[in-house]
Amino acid sequence: MVTSRPRTRMLALGAAALCASSLLVACGSSDKPVLTWYINPDGVETLTGLAERCSTDQYDIRTELLPTGATDQRIQLARRLAAEDDTTDLMNLDPVFVPEFANANWIARMPDDVAADLVDDDTLAGIAETVKWDDGVYAAPMWANTQLLWFRKSLAQQAGLDMSQPVTWDQVIDAASSVPGASVGVQANKYEAYVVWINALVQGAGGDIVSDTEAGTDAKVDIDSDAGRDAAAVIQKLASSPAAQSDLSVSNEGTSLPAMFSGPGEFMTNWTFVYKNYEPTPDNGITPEQYDDLGYAR
């Protein structure tokens, strides 16, 4: 059985505004202050080790797990912070939530000297922008991720699809449909990752969902366009094809994972955690030969 370990495109570490901006001040009242760090279920071993190494004689850092889905993570943190929960000190955030939390004054603005270390000339411009709000830095970039198209090499070969060349969604859907039992896995439940897929489809067709985003509520909505209609056509084609997985309308990062090594396999959009997830272990039953059959395209 393949287990799901979904990962967002990027994670940032924010400090709750309920505490003082210095991380040396905890919201607890024990003899030795304890900072609670809410972490994603992805990379738990690494993050727990980091919490242990960063604990000092002045304070300890303990970790608490968030739900697996980005939307559920946001809901839990938002409820805690809105209720002024004094045990929420540090948190991992999907970057799309940093502006919301900063605007609500739920996370602290980093002092200028700390911000200068967190976002410097070595930080990629796109990543640096995800932790900023209103000219301030509100989180520390932790790691970035990207969505890839994963596939079984043997499936692509059987379907006659050359994955060393650029391919279209029409080609991918047609290829999977031509092989009995093959499928296309996506994230199409009504949540954040579905928007990611739609955005990728629209941008791939040369358009944007919105433009002039710096205008805030006055931003221009552009999805009613040829690119938007092309994106919708891809979703419609997949939904009505033999390649559609049975749980398409509620699919997420984890639901399509088992299909990769079931029958002829699948083409699947997903994050880079997939590669480690499929690494053969005594528990997941994946063989080295199957692992070698795993391919990806950007």
Rank of each mutant, 00 (worst) to 15 (best):
168 T>L: 00
46 T>Q: 01
101 F>G: 09
76 Q>R: 09
287 T>M: 01
40 N>M: 11
241 S>A: 03
179 V>N: 01
169 W>M: 01
11 L>M: 04
115 A>M: 03
21 S>F: 11
180 P>R: 10
58 Q>T: 12
146 T>L: 03
258 P>Q: 00
152 R>W: 08
127 I>R: 08
212 D>H: 13
146 T>I: 04
83 A>M: 05
148 L>I: 04
97 F>E: 15
38 Y>T: 07
28 G>E: 05
266 E>A: 15
43 G>C: 10
112 D>A: 09
152 R>M: 04
97 F>T: 14
12 A>I: 02
183 S>M: 09
280 P>K: 10
181 G>N: 00
256 S>Q: 08
257 L>N: 07
64 E>M: 06
109 R>Q: 12
94 D>R: 00
48 T>L: 06
120 D>V: 06
102 A>C: 04
127 I>V: 15
132 K>M: 06
294 L>T: 12
276 K>E: 13
149 L>N: 00
5 R>H: 13
137 V>W: 07
69 G>M: 07
95 P>F: 09
38 Y>D: 01
262 S>L: 11
137 V>E: 03
259 A>P: 02
87 T>C: 02
41 P>Y: 11
21 S>Q: 12
214 E>L: 05
24 L>R: 14
198 I>F: 14
142 M>K: 09
63 T>D: 01
297 A>T: 07
17 A>K: 15
184 V>T: 05
146 T>W: 04
106 W>M: 08
4 S>K: 13
208 D>R: 15
53 R>Q: 08
116 A>T: 12
214 E>R: 10
109 R>H: 10
121 D>E: 03
20 A>C: 10
137 V>Q: 06
144 A>F: 10
128 A>C: 05
170 D>M: 04
235 I>Y: 02
172 V>M: 02
86 D>C: 12
203 Q>I: 09
221 V>W: 14
196 V>M: 03
82 A>H: 10
260 M>H: 06
230 D>P: 04
7 R>T: 14
42 D>N: 10
4 S>G: 15
161 L>S: 13
57 D>A: 15
202 V>E: 00
76 Q>E: 05
18 L>V: 10
43 G>D: 08
62 R>P: 00
76 Q>Y: 07
87 T>R: 05
143 W>Q: 13
230 D>W: 07
61 I>T: 07
117 D>E: 11
272 T>I: 06
90 L>M: 05
42 D>K: 06
45 E>K: 14
128 A>Y: 05
165 Q>T: 11
